[in-house]
């Protein structure tokens, strides 16, 4: 383990080696035993984490009043729960509420359907497209453009 690797591991796993995966901890302890620079890095990381933890600590009392307000707001009648029990009564709602946990499955299903749609669009049979294009071209060839833009014979109105 190099010193740079050790520094990254300190940031990733924290400055308390007891929480590290065992294999990494053994290698780290070996490095610490042999390198003064590693010991300095560890001390610095521990000090930095103490600084963060001290800053992050929230006095419990500071949350008493706001959590009391939250709980009082929830003290009244609660809304109706959403679940499978309504299925026989309201199947459209049950379908709309359908929940495939975890969310990744839903996203994967949606992406799969989209990919299938694109694949069908690109590779699927091109039914009738060629014929219809040909039909439009033939129809256009039959039309005399002069008649299209001529004034209407009775009223004289131009298109």
């Amino acid at each position: 383990m190099t010193l740079a690797e050790f520094q990254d591991l300190l940031a990733a796993h924290g400055a308390h080696l007891s929480t590290w995966p065992e294999e990494l901890r053994d290698r780290a302890e070996h490095l610490l035993a042999s390198e003064q620079a590693a010991r300095l890095c560890l001390a610095e990381a521990q000090r930095f984490e103490r600084l963060l933890a001290r800053h992050m600590s929230v006095p419990v009392k500071a949350l008493d009043a706001p959590s009391g307000r939250v709980l009082r707001a929830l003290a009244g009648p609660l809304p109706r729960q959403r679940g499978w029990r309504r299925f026989p009564l309201s199947w459209p709602t049950a379908l709309l509420d359908f929940d495939l946990a975890p969310a990744r499955l839903r996203i994967a299903a949606l992406a799969g359907i989209a990919a299938l749609g694109v694949a069908l669009g690109l590779l699927g049979p091109d039914v009738g497209t060629g014929d219809s294009r040909l039909g439009v071209a033939l129809a256009a060839a039959d039309v005399d453009l002069a008649t299209v833009f001529d004034p209407e014979p009775l009223t004289g109105v131009r298109p």
Binding site: V58, P66, V70, L74, Q81, R82, G83, A101
Partner: peptide, 29 residues
Amino acid sequence: RRITGNDADAEELVQEALLRVWINAPRWR
């Protein structure tokens, strides 16, 4: 509070989160 930086927002959000717990509990696995 730490994410929003706002006490009033935090109270409102936690209330909403707890209500979601209640509403969605039958579907929670």
